[in-house]
Amino acid sequence: MEYSAVEMISYTGSRVLEDEKIVFVGTGLPIIAAMHAQLTHAPNLYMIYEAGSLAPILEIGMPLSVGDTRAARKACYLKGLCAVFELTQRGFADYAFIGGAQIDMYGNVCSHLEGDVYEKPNIRFPGSGGAGAMAANCEKTIVIMALEKRRFVQQVDFVTSIGFGDGSPDYREKAGVMGSGPYRVITQHALFGFDEETRRMKLLEVAPGKTPAEVQDNVSFELLMDENVKEMAVPTEQDLKLLKEEIDPEGYFLKRVTR
């Protein structure tokens, strides 16, 4: 079956989400992944959109952004940012589903800048948005990122979204955050989890045709390897049809070029 990198990421994102949970989604592939999960194995999975919507029915089209008015369609509860982030602090959001520019071995994510100096970075990205709050207080954090050495780094330039910090067991507690932290990192070629003891990133699955060594070659830090690294499941024809024809028929996200 022919599938693209973004289709693989979306499908894997869907696979990772369990039924009867609430996922706080970021723009783009997280929305697609959650919609796919709802249409397949997780009909009782619901979404939070940070402008203020809980459990919408996306019947007039996929929201192109988390602030899209379509994300408010037929919601169960529709307020503002405070309301949904407070639901999250309280413990009602099971997954944070975010992206970013860089990630380190403890799952800390940068989406602010590239450079050494906060006041005058080399490159400035939009900023935290909701990501910093989602990674802090949703129960589990799922991160989507392209598997590239410049993104899987020894040290991020700026910690935007908290992971396990320096890896010390009480890092998140000292940070005053409530969620349990990084859970999965999804790329086009590999699925990662985190080791319970060391809190370091661990390779769980590789895409067909790829080896763990090839994955390690695209990561700047040393990966832990699961005892039993599996092959990633690939989307079926039915999955691709759902993604391309029902979820994102205009190809807003699925036709974007990524490596």
């Binding site: 906060y118 802090a136 910690v159 908290i162 940070a175 955050v177």
Partner: peptide, 12 residues
Amino acid sequence: VRDHGGTDMELT
């Protein structure tokens, strides 16, 4: 609030 801590926003 329960966020910002443990990130560089806490410093900056």
